[in-house]
């Protein structure tokens, strides 16, 4: 019986020592940072006391620290800094491609016409110069594809993003965005047109050249 209790005790302390490594790993930088700021530098004895306290509490009371560690991790994952680091920059992927198009077809489809004269009668209207900048950068062998995707941000937001993208030597390259809006701000799903359906409708209406 005693041997069994000793064995259990040994395992308890061993796990506690492993937890010390985890906890000190997480807290050491914090304690060290405080020491490295001359204005806030606590005396060495205080730092030693802090490390010792962490060590003792962790070895002896480690089961109580597990929920605390989980809480720290959850808090970290919700922090602005963490989410900002995880945020990827947007780029369309192969699965987002909708249809291969040529410049003439895109320009015909994107022609803006306003009866009140509020926009130039040009492809992409007021954004015509941006479009020309985009096509001026196309590699000679580039294909143009339309894309539509719901982009999920690290912050939890969902954006509908649509536009045209280049495909050159089997790789996705530059893209020209034509629509970008927050899905959460849209009308209820049952009354919303999805972009893919909208693009499919357009392609169907445009006939075989697409």
């Amino acid at each position: 019986m005693l041997a069994k209790a000793l064995l259990l005790g040994q395992w308890y302390l061993l796990i506690g020592l492993l937890m010390v490594i985890l906890v000190l790993g997480a807290r050491a930088r914090l304690i060290w940072n405080k020491r490295s700021e001359p204005g806030e530098r606590p005396p060495f004895s205080k730092t030693l006391a802090q490390y010792t306290l962490v060590l003792l509490v962790t070895v002896l009371l480690w089961p109580l620290l597990i929920p605390l560690l989980i809480l720290w991790e959850i808090q970290k994952r919700r922090s602005w800094d963490y989410l900002e680091k995880r945020e990827r920059s947007f780029a369309p992927k192969f699965k987002d491609l909708v249809a291969r198009l040529d410049i003439e077809a895109i320009e015909a489809h994107e022609l803006v016409s306003d009866p009140l004269g509020g926009a130039p009668r040009l492809p992409f209207g007021h954004l015509n110069a941006a479009w020309h900048n985009f096509i001026a950068q196309l590699p000679p062998d580039a294909e143009l594809w339309s894309y539509a995707v719901v982009w999920k941000s690290a912050f939890g937001g969902r954006e509908q993003r649509e536009g045209y993208v280049t495909l050159s030597s089997g790789k996705i390259g530059l893209y020209f965005e034509t629509a970008r809006y927050d899905c959460a701000a849209q009308l209820p799903r049952q009354v919303r047109d999805t972009s893919s359906r909208w693009v499919a409708k357009l392609l169907k209406a445009a006939g075989p050249r697409f």
């Binding site: 803006v112 306003d114 009140l116 509020g118 926009a119 209207g125 007021h126 954004l127 509908q160 649509e162 034509t178 629509a179 970008r180 809006y181 927050d182 701000a185 849209q186 009308l187």
Partner: peptide
């Protein structure tokens, strides 16, 4: 006036 043809969304 300028026609806001680029506006898609709510």
């Amino acid at each position: 006036r300028v026609f806001a043809h680029w506006v898609t969304g709510t």
